[in-house]
């Protein structure tokens, strides 16, 4: 453990010295934050695509599949409600200690696991809403060409759903950058955990956490900048919504049926 003699009595000086002296451990924290947030968001997105995608499928009444789907919907709803309705900190502690005897896992793996299934619950709803935002006509056109329900979902609906849901998906990523801090309760060495150790060793809480706050802010600002660039790109290529005069015409005609 390094020790720091704070020379100036200026607050700002103290902050800078912390940054200069402790940047390696802060950087380690940042790396962990990014690892946890990126993998958690990606795995969460996959979970959301599967769970939300299946949720959006409609099954005809009266068949056995209808019953299975009914049970599935209830289970999926429970999953979403439980993970959105309880604090991630509580989920982290519970899951880490509960499954530790079975898996013998390290905090970082447990942390990625927790953030993934937590994100998955939010993503499931985001994807479901994204799928519902795709016009029914897209499905009808695909089915009328002979494409199966599955082909329609994979090649027509999901790509548009992801595009529509992209802002919300990106937002989950930013939330994860910040919320990874709760994983300090299971000793994941992310940024907040590192900051706590630095602050504890120096007895300098205000300065350390101000620096830490700026590091988080830096991460989220850069991330949202990148996400904005990606979003602009997606909107520019292929799928921008029509702005021609025929659009209003079309909507009117559809309304009349």
């Amino acid at each position: 453990m390094k020790y720091l003699t704070i020379t100036g009595n200026q607050f700002i000086d103290a902050c800078l010295s912390i940054l200069i002296t402790f940047w390696p451990s802060l950087l380690l924290g940042v790396k962990t934050v990014l690892l946890v947030a990126i993998s958690g968001t990606i795995i969460g997105l996959v979970i959301g695509l599967i769970i939300g995608g299946l949720r959006a499928i409609k099954v005809e009444k009266g068949s056995i599949i209808y019953f299975i789907k009914w049970v599935y919907d209830i289970l999926a709803k429970c999953y979403v409600e439980i993970f959105r309705g309880t604090p991630m900190m509580v989920q982290a502690v519970f899951i880490y200690y509960w499954l530790k005897p079975a898996f013998g896992w390290s905090p970082i793996i447990a942390g990625i696991f927790v953030i993934s299934i937590n994100t998955g619950a939010y993503m499931a709803e985001i994807i479901r809403a994204g799928i519902q935002s795709v016009e029914i006509g897209q499905t009808e056109a695909a089915r009328s060409l002979g494409m199966s329900a599955q082909q329609t979902m994979m090649s027509i609906i999901i790509p548009q759903a992801i595009k529509n849901a992209f802002p919300a998906i990106g937002n989950e990523f930013i939330v994860n950058i910040k919320d990874s801090s709760v994983l300090n309760v299971i000793s994941v060495t992310e940024l907040f955990f590192q900051a706590k150790s630095i602050a504890g060793s120096l007895y300098r809480y205000e300065e350390t956490f101000l620096v830490t706050a700026f590091v988080y802010l830096f991460l989220t600002i850069i991330t949202s900048f990148i996400l904005n660039l990606i979003e602009k790109r997606i909107n520019k290529t292929k799928t921008s919504f029509p702005t021609s005069s025929t659009t209003t015409n079309m909507v009117k005609a559809q309304g009349e049926h």
Partner: peptide, 8 residues
């Protein structure tokens, strides 16, 4: 009537 071209 509403064309339904695949937007993606």
């Amino acid at each position: 009537q509403s064309f339904n071209l695949f937007n993606n």
